[in-house]
Amino acid sequence: MSTHLFTHFIPSTPLQAAMYFIEHKSGDATGMLPLLGTWSIIFILILMLYKIESYKKKEFILLNRIHEQQEHELDIQEAERRRIAADLHDEIGSSLAAIKMNLQSLRYSSVHDEQRATSLLELVDQTSQNVRRATHNLIPPHFETTPFTSILQSYFSSLDSRGTIAFHYYCNAYQHHFTSRQELLLYRIVMELTHNIIRHAKASEATVQILFCPDYLEIMVEDNGIGLPAAFQQGIGLTSVHTRVRSLGGQIHTDSGRCGTTFIIHVPLSCEHAC
């Protein structure tokens, strides 16, 4: 195979230059060596840059696929929450209402029976409230029209009236930078961290802050409990928190010890790439 045919199949500028010098300057091979060495280095550098760029493109495609898969999983979770909330409202809620009506329509032969029925009615009312609260947690009411900060304010106000943990909630001036779907993710993040405090922290006091800064939203959740056990750090709840934070293009920092746990989350206000 001639050198012309070889360069036809491998159209490399450095290689073509080298072949030219080999054909036309073969009498002075010693003088060509520095030039050939320079072109060889340039060729290797170009090849390395091309491979690096190719790897970056592949990594970008892979990260996009992972992001799309995470978004799909979050959509499935939300759809399942809506289904469970509908079942709670339609089936259990309706059954409790029917039980209450039947108890109220009964005639009692003694004061003792009436007192027992009154106790049952109170239990039915309490159960109905628990069902409504569970439904609210699964699907916040009027989420499409109500800021997530207002829904959280209502939730923490109800916790203060019935809980053993003193929750302090603070939010500065609300700013509408996020879509309804993104606000739902932010709501889920705060709720999951709050539920972890209620279930596992053994805390007496907790603070939740939602701060709209010029370039980012800061969520800080802290408690004075026993710290975060290692087993819970890899649990489903905190994993979903990390997934939602990444979906919003944000970052999360955790500091946990014997004096309590602090989560600090930063989410950029301009997150066109997210969700």
Rank of each mutant, 00 (worst) to 15 (best):
I76S: 09
I76E: 11
I76T: 07
Q77L: 09
Q77P: 09
A79T: 01
A79H: 08
E80W: 07
E80R: 09
E80L: 08
R81P: 00
R81M: 04
R81Y: 02
R82P: 01
R82E: 04
R82T: 05
R82L: 00
R82H: 05
I84T: 04
I84M: 06
A86N: 06
A86C: 04
D87F: 08
D87R: 09
D87M: 04
L88M: 04
L88F: 01
L88A: 02
L88C: 02
L88V: 01
H89D: 08
H89T: 09
D90G: 05
D90N: 05
E91C: 12
E91M: 09
E91F: 12
I92V: 01
I92P: 05
G93H: 02
G93K: 00
G93I: 00
S94R: 02
S95V: 07
S95G: 06
S95F: 03
S95W: 02
L96P: 02
L96K: 06
L96W: 02
A97I: 05
A97W: 01
A97E: 00
A97T: 03
A98K: 10
K100G: 00
K100A: 03
K100C: 02
K100P: 05
M101R: 13
M101P: 06
N102H: 07
N102C: 02
N102F: 07
L103P: 06
L103N: 08
L103Y: 00
Q104E: 00
Q104V: 03
S105A: 07
S105N: 05
L106V: 05
R107W: 06
Y108I: 02
Y108W: 01
Y108F: 03
S109F: 04
S109I: 02
S109M: 03
S110Y: 03
S110W: 03
V111E: 12
V111P: 06
H112S: 11
D113E: 07
D113Y: 09
E114K: 05
E114C: 03
R116N: 12
R116C: 12
R116V: 14
A117C: 02
T118Y: 10
T118M: 10
T118H: 13
T118A: 15
T118G: 15
S119D: 11
S119N: 12
S119I: 00
S119G: 11
L120K: 10
L120E: 09
L120T: 08
E122M: 14
E122L: 13
L123N: 15
L123D: 14
D125K: 14
Q126G: 14
Q126L: 13
Q126H: 14
T127Y: 13
T127F: 11
S128Y: 11
S128E: 08
S128N: 12
Q129N: 14
Q129R: 15
N130E: 15
N130G: 14
N130Q: 15
N130K: 15
N130S: 15
N130C: 13
V131K: 15
V131C: 10
V131M: 15
R132K: 14
R132F: 12
R133V: 08
R133E: 10
A134N: 11
T135M: 13
T135V: 11
N137M: 11
